[in-house]
């Protein structure tokens, strides 16, 4: 996967979480992921078509997503439930939208599908493209999450 795809997703994630949840995660060093195991307890996945083929997943640790959604809704969330999954889908949708807008400025017009959400310990992520995905790790005060991107330019 071309490294030019990393920054739009990194920047979009920071922007969405700051605007929606007043949270400023600290990004770590991106690395290649060769298995399909999710790096979190709940994941939102969205597929892309157009100038690229691929998908992006956001995988949150439980404590991290409970804190994020508590901030977004202004009420304390205590467990991963339908409301949390709903919020993960929406966050995934927004990160995808902001990143795609950024990629459009590079001449890549990309459409996205409606996100799906999977939760549970040790769930797997099935990307559309079979090549290894790139993990962009983030740390928050309430635990880690990752952006997991696998994109192939047409």
């Amino acid at each position: 996967m071309n490294v030019k795809f990393i920054n739009p997703f990194l920047d979009a994630t920071l922007y969405v979480l700051k605007t929606m949840a007043s949270i400023e995660p600290v990004p770590g060093k991106p690395y290649l992921k060769k298995d399909n195991l999710a790096r979190g307890d709940v994941s939102g996945i969205i597929g892309f078509t157009g100038a690229v083929t691929g998908s992006m997943a956001l995988s949150f640790s439980e404590r991290c997503i409970l804190n994020i959604v508590s901030n977004i809704l202004g009420e304390t969330m205590r467990e991963i439930n339908g409301e949390i999954e709903d919020a993960v889908g929406e966050i995934t949708n927004m990160v995808s939208g902001v990143a795609r807008k950024d990629l459009e400025s590079l001449g890549l017009s990309i459409s996205a599908a409606i996100p799906t959400v999977i939760s549970g310990k040790n769930h797997s992520i099935s990307h559309i493209v079979s090549a290894p995905s790139i993990i962009i790790p983030f740390e928050t005060q309430e635990g880690p999450f990752v952006v997991d991107v696998s994109i192939k330019e047409k």
Binding site: I72, L73, D86, A87, G89, E90
Partner: peptide, 11 residues
């Protein structure tokens, strides 16, 4: 379609 987003907008 996302209940969370409806709640966010309502807030």
């Amino acid at each position: 379609d996302f209940a969370t987003m409806r709640k966010v907008i309502r807030n």
